[in-house]
């Protein structure tokens, strides 16, 4: 048989490899209806919460409004790790719950369809996979933050809530939470790599961690302690309407640190474990 192939093997650079993998993940993301469904969910939920706040209950009497200021649907006035009512809990941190579910479904399909084998046949570097998934997941969660914001504002307009706010703090709160997306996305990617053979468990684990229950539970024991900021949920709560440049710095450092940790751990697990 004639050997017609040129046997040249050029090592693709990190940039070329990651470009290919990111390209696939973005192509998939934009071509899957699930992404748009989650964007819609992220918009509808805050809109519903805000617009229904203060509506008359079944007895005809107006219920106590959850918020008087529309921006409380984005972030709390101060960093509250202990939750007393749903109003203190329902803010942009909910995107981390929706994001967790979406990322689990997105990555879970890689394994369920067997596509991950195609990827790993041609890409030997498991680190590329972790980085690409973390970035794409963070992007999708950032998009959810934007639709969440739009939904919240629309609901606030409908409910006639106050829009008074310190614009600087609001921007820091929004940007802080968006920065935290990268850490959360890396965590979810890591969880999905760990539970890659168990789709249901990976969805449940992402949901559970995303709710922040472990940190809320810890806060119930140790109180509103700023030490909780070293965790993703803690820093996400810390990005509130009384935030300043330090808040932003904390979010950047904590998100970056956990991103590195989860990416390293995930790469290690993938390199040492079989892919099914």
């Amino acid at each position: 048989m004639a050997q017609t192939h040129e046997l040249k093997f050029e090592n693709p650079s990190f940039g070329k490899r990651i470009k290919g993998m990111l390209g696939v993940d973005f192509y998939r993301l934009f071509h899957t209806p699930m992404f748009y469904i989650f964007l819609a969910i992220a918009a509808i939920i805050p809109a519903m919460i805000v617009s229904m706040t203060g509506m008359a209950g079944p007895d005809g009497a107006a219920t106590r409004p959850l918020y008087t200021n529309v921006w409380n649907i984005v972030a709390a006035d101060s960093p509250l790790y202990i939750i007393h009512d749903i109003g203190q809990y329902a803010n942009m941190n909910m995107v981390f719950i929706f994001g967790g579910i979406m990322v689990s479904i997105f990555i879970g399909h890689d394994y369920r369809s067997g596509y991950v084998k195609q990827l790993f046949t041609t890409h030997a570097k498991k680190r590329d996979y972790m980085i690409s998934k973390s970035l794409v997941s963070a992007f999708s969660m950032a998009c959810m933050c934007i639709t969440y914001l739009i939904g919240g504002i629309a609901g606030g307009l409908f409910a006639g809530l106050s829009f008074n706010v310190n614009v600087g703090s609001l921007i820091i709160a929004i940007l802080g939470k968006m920065v935290m997306n990268l850490g959360w996305a890396s965590l979810y990617t890591f969880l999905n790599v760990i539970f890659r053979r168990y789709f249901g468990i990976s969805v449940a684990a992402s949901f559970f961690i995303g709710t922040g229950i472990p940190i809320i539970g810890a806060a119930a024991i140790i109180g509103n302690n700023s030490l909780l900021n070293v965790f993703l949920y803690g820093s996400s709560v810390y990005a509130c309407l009384s935030g300043n440049i330090v808040t932003m710095l904390v979010c950047v450092v904590v998100s970056a640190a956990w991103t590195v940790i989860y990416n390293l751990l995930g790469s290690l697990v993938l390199a040492r474990c079989d892919v099914y």
Partner: peptide, 25 residues
Amino acid sequence: RKYTNAGVRARVGALIENTGCFPNS
């Protein structure tokens, strides 16, 4: 080359067990 070499792996094609395609695409 070592089988984990990215250059050589970029030129390997495989069909093992299933095609690795997304069913809804």
